[in-house]
Design a protein around this nucleic acid. Structure first.
Length: 884
RNA sequence: GGGCGGUUAGCUCAGCGGAAGAGUAUCGGCCUUACAAGCCGGGUGUCACUGGUUCGAAUCCAGUACCGCCCACCA
């Protein structure tokens, strides 16, 4: 025995994880070959924000593709999984501004240059945190190719994309009503707005009609915007207001005259049927204003404060303060008819949750429709497949109703827009490099656009930007398009759709072939995790408590496609125990290792060995099938059950008597099976499997690059499965009888087995040592008929019976009686069901023959068992009355 | 307003046309030299409700109820 190789008694994840995470990276086992003759499999990592710390969503979203990457790598693919981070404009701004704020500094005080210096320093210092965590978790990423969305190469790519799209008129600048977050002080695109239900008031305000003494009453939730009203609108066919068409109303407070216009978009049912029109502060009104050539008066600025145009009394006020003041002024003048409680949905900033302010300003947009069209096509045609397929519906829904994408942001941290404005002639120059002079008037007084691009604009280029585009690189050649994109449903619009559009536009090809959409990770109680609820489960805490392998396995086992997953701590503890189980099973194997390991000779090995080789082969097939379909939970469940309840519970126990024998051949199979199991499990539990595997007498640099088991058709030994199942039935039946009759485990009993078939009788006899060992039985007789004289407690196991001799005083007949009666009751119910079915003419006529035969066979077996049980019960009754 | 999920054992969830499963919890018995983070054995369900299709429905269809998401210029 080799003492050195015996593992410690219990598994300690932490040092093991550190060791192998470093080893894999140091040996560049996750770096693919370029060029390579191997088939490639590539993915890019959804880049986490530099501001971020690893959360459970990451853990899930990275564990699943890591399982696939490891599986493919072991299958011999040339695997690239490319990592990196996202510069996250707004998030970084928020962090740094908060920091400056503490020192009483505003970003404007220090200026753009200084601010960017701080941002870069900050990125250097803290941006590495998440990278460090990813490395620690051992995701099989190629760190030699790590990228950042704000690195130099990316800037080149961004500028080229911007210029090309501009030239094609797919990027344009426009004066438009956009969403602005007053707190983040930037505009946002439509999908960065979260709509939330809010309880507020609907105010009915009287607008006097000029020279009549009449009033037109309008309903609004935002009285403060009335200062910017430039019309009243009614539906053209609304008789109630016909008399006012073309009349003028006097705007209260401002005392401006505004026209009453007709517009079909007015809903006659809502409020009073008349609406106030504020083109500069409401999207619907903006459109209406354009139609009717209305003036756009900006009364609220980008910070949510009232402008000068709002009037002397209001300027400088916050929009909500102004609302209160406007209401009180109107009330004083008796112009508020009423105020109703009102629930409606209001747009909030997805970053800071501040209520969005519609804001009229010059911004850059992507004309999205032409790009969306192509992106719809490739999904329609099946070139890109969503998993689960349902998500393509959501994707189409959005793509068909897509709006132009506002891409400029009033921020500093990000890719600055490559547009310059001539200070002399106002000409706009869009170019990849800073121009020296205006190409229209020749002036050198040029000023670059102050804004940066939406962070998602750069993320959209991620699949090819990371591989060196616009250069024609080997990586692009080898790895684009990628094979799989695994991500959350929340960024299908933000990211997935845009990558598809940009990939098609600039690479002329899809960025990935499949999109796996994982669910949301919920807490132990199925609640959404949120900071305010305080129910965040930190993956790093879980790792500390249970180890990375257990966390990974839990996530995989719960990852049913299309479903949110609810973390269960019990389950995780269960998988922690599973890790330990594997550890100890391996200990057992290693303890038995000898200098010479016998070759596996198919004709020589035992029944048990044939059986486990066959079963392992079954699992190989099932694992590959499940992973092929991204059914992580199914694969996890299968391997778990196989390892614990077949390999450990049965095989290791069955093999023990064999190992004791001289010249046992079982050791070879034992090691081979463990080896295969570790390979099968490795993508799910990389650390513990690598640790054990390295101690096995098998060749190879590391398990990460060892071959994944393939189906071996020469191991389809049905005979061994059948016979071992019979032995298991016998053992379980004996154990049940023992347990129910409280026959102590230490108590040696003898056993009679009644088998009709003579061949089977011999075969059972041949393998009786297993029964002796696992059912703690001393002597075994295998007979055609039970001896009539002996008193036996009998049990039915499959189509044979077992009998344990009754020793006087040892058996409580009533217990045994109860057991049999219960079993009989069940059998009666079942057989009645089957009987009924078979009596149904329609069933016989219409059901497939196979089903009918199965039913008949089932009924026959139940009947036989029933007869046996009834006899046994009768006997027990007899003995029972004899005894009393 | 439109769309999408869910409702199965106490709990967390599989199963998605052939007759109810797993983990965990629970009950009984075991420190059997790989493992007490363990071993052996047991019990557990009107598969949300109402109809329909079918020889057969947890599974397919229609509707109802209750949860949960996403989308929408609800002034």
């Amino acid at each position: 025995m080799n003492d050195k190789k015996i593992l410690k008694k219990s598994y300690d994840p932490d040092p093991v994880e550190k060791k192998w995470a470093d080893f894999w990276i140091d040996h560049q086992l996750f770096t693919p070959e370029v060029p390579s003759s191997k088939k490639k499999f590539s993915m890019v990592l959804p880049p986490p924000n530099v501001t971020g710390s690893l959360h459970m969503g990451h853990a899930l979203c990275f564990t699943l593709p890591d399982i696939i990457a490891r599986w493919k790598r072991m299958q011999g693919y040339n695997v690239l999984w490319l990592p990196g981070t996202d510069h996250a404009s707004i998030a970084v701004h928020n962090v740094i501004e908060r920091k400056l704020d503490k020192e009483g500094i505003k970003k404007e005080d220090i200026g753009r240059e200084e601010f960017l210096k701080i941002a870069w320093n900050w990125k250097k210092k803290y941006g590495g945190k998440i990278i460090h965590q990813l490395k620690k978790l051992g995701f099989s990423l190629d760190w030699t190719r790590e990228r950042f969305t704000l690195d130099k190469g990316f800037s080149r790519a961004i500028n080229k994309v911007f210029v090309d799209l501009y030239k094609e008129k797919l990027i344009y600048r426009d004066y438009y009503l956009v969403n602005r977050c007053p707190k983040c002080s930037t505009v946002l695109s439509d999908i960065e707005i979260e709509h939330k239900e809010m309880h507020s008031k609907l105010y009915y305000i009287k607008y006097p009609v000029k020279d009549t003494g009449d009033y037109i009453v309008v309903a609004t939730t935002r009285p403060e915007t009335m200062l910017g009203d430039t019309a009243l609108a009614v539906h053209p066919k609304d008789k109630r207001f016909k008399k006012y068409h073309g009349q003028k109303a006097v705007l209260p407070l401002a005392q401006r005259e505004i026209l009453v216009i007709k517009d079909k978009s007015v809903d006659r049912e809502f409020g009073t049927g008349a609406v106030k029109v504020t083109p500069a502060h409401d999207p619907a009104d903006f459109e209406m204003g354009k139609q009717h050539g209305l003036e756009q008066i900006i009364v609220i600025d980008g910070a949510g404060r009232m402008t000068e145009a709002a009037g002397e009394e209001y300027k400088g006020l916050d929009r909500y303060e102004c609302r209160e003041l406007v209401i009180s002024h109107l009330e004083e003048q008796g112009l508020i008819e009423k105020a109703e409680d009102y629930v409606h949905s209001v747009g909030h900033c997805y970053r800071c949750k501040t209520v969005i302010e519609p804001h009229l300003s010059w911004q850059w947009f992507v004309k999205i429709e032409p790009l969306a069209k192509q992106a719809i096509k490739v999904v329609k045609k099946g070139k890109i497949r969503f998993i689960p397929a349902n998500w393509s519906k959501t994707y189409f829904e959005w793509m068909y109703n897509i709006h132009d994408w506002c891409i400029s942001r009033q921020l500093w941290w990000g890719h600055r827009i490559p547009a310059w404005y001539c200070q002399e002639c106002n000409h706009t120059i869009v170019a990849e490099q800073a121009p020296k002079k205006c190409d229209k008037c020749g002036s050198t007084k040029l000023k670059q656009d102050e804004d940066v691009l939406d962070t998602w604009f750069s993320s959209a280029l991620w699949p090819f930007g990371t591989m060196g585009w616009p250069e024609k690189t080997d990586d692009l050649n080898t790895f684009y398009p990628t094979d799989l994109m695994a991500t959350g449903f929340d960024i299908i619009f933000f990211w997935v759709a845009r990558m598809i559009m940009m990939g098609l536009k600039f690479m002329g090809d899809i960025p990935f072939k499949e999109v796996y959409i994982n669910g949301l990770v919920r807490d132990f109680k199925r609640k959404k995790m949120s900071k305010s609820e305080g129910n965040i489960i930190d993956p790093l805490d879980m790792i500390k408590k249970y180890g990375t392998d257990a966390l990974r396995f839990t996530l995989a086992a719960l990852a049913v496609p299309g479903m949110d997953i609810s973390l269960s701590e019990e389950r995780m503890a269960g998988y922690r125990a599973f890790v330990n189980k594997i550890w100890n099973a391996s200990r057992f194997v290693l303890m038995n290792i000898q200098d010479k390991i016998p070759e596996i000779d198919k004709n020589e090995i035992t029944l048990i060995d044939r059986w486990i080789m066959t079963r392992t082969n079954d699992i190989v097939r099932e694992m590959n099938d499940s992973l092929e379909k991204y059914n992580f939970y199914e694969a996890a469940d299968k391997i778990y059950h196989f390892i614990w309840h077949e390999f450990c519970d049965w095989y290791l126990e069955l093999v023990k008597p064999d190992l004791k024998e001289e010249n046992s051949s079982s050791l070879g199979v034992l090691i081979k099976t463990l080896d295969k199991i570790l390979r099968l499990l490795h993508p799910f539990m990389p650390f513990v499997t690598e640790e054990i595997w390295q101690d096995l007498p098998v060749k190879g640099e590391a398990l990460v690059v060892a071959e994944y088991p393939k189906l071996d058709k020469s191991w389809e030994d049905k005979d061994s499965k059948k016979l071992v199942n019979t032995l298991q039935d016998i053992i379980v039946e004996v154990r049940t009888i023992r347990s129910e009759n409280h026959i102590a485990p230490q108590k040696n009993i003898s056993l009679a087995i009644k088998v009709d078939d003579e061949t089977l009788r011999e075969r059972i006899l041949e393998h009786k040592k297993y029964i002796q060992f696992l059912a703690s039985v001393k002597e075994i007789e295998v007979l055609g008929q039970f001896p009539s004289k002996k008193k036996l407690i009998k049990g039915v196991a499959g189509n044979l019976e077992v009998g344990i001799p009754v020793e006087p005083g040892l058996i409580d007949f009533s217990v045994e009686k109860k057991r049999l009666e219960k079993e009989l009751r069940k059998i009666k119910e079942d057989s009645e069901k089957l009987q009924k079915r078979l009596e149904n003419k329609n069933f016989i006529q219409r059901a497939p023959e196979k089903v009918i035969n199965e039913t008949k066979q089932g009924l026959k077996e139940l009947k036989e068992k029933r007869t046996k049980l009834e006899q046994n019960l009768k006997q027990i009754n007899d003995w029972s009355s004899e005894a009393s």
